[in-house]
């Protein structure tokens, strides 16, 4: 799980082009959207593609993403429970 969380942080930084952020800057429970990392709805769509491509998880409704992408912690938990890749 710890490994997955680090992997997710690195992927988020790369996929979303967060040049000035390092994995150490993101705490597991930090909110990714709004206040925390400041991600927006387009980033959410980018993360949905990442779930599909790297972990074989397909989301049909972008609204489902809201809960899953709350933090790295919630993402990791969801991936662990649902991954096929």
């Amino acid at each position: 799980m710890t490994e997955l969380k680090l992997e997710l942080k690195e992927k988020i930084i790369e996929q979303l082009n967060l040049e000035d952020v390092s994995a150490d800057d993101i705490a597991d429970q930090d909110p990714l959207f709004g206040e925390g990392l400041g991600l927006d709805s387009i980033d959410a769509l980018e993360l949905i593609v990442m779930l599909d491509k790297d972990y074989g998880i397909k989301l049909a409704d972008p609204k489902e993403g809201r809960k899953i992408f709350e933090s790295v912690e919630t993402m990791a938990a969801y991936i662990t429970a649902n991954r096929s890749a």
Binding site: Q15, L45, V49
Partner: peptide, 10 residues
């Protein structure tokens, strides 16, 4: 047509 991301389209 798989794994496309929105940013490039926008």
């Amino acid at each position: 047509e798989q794994y496309l991301t929105p940013t490039r389209f926008i």
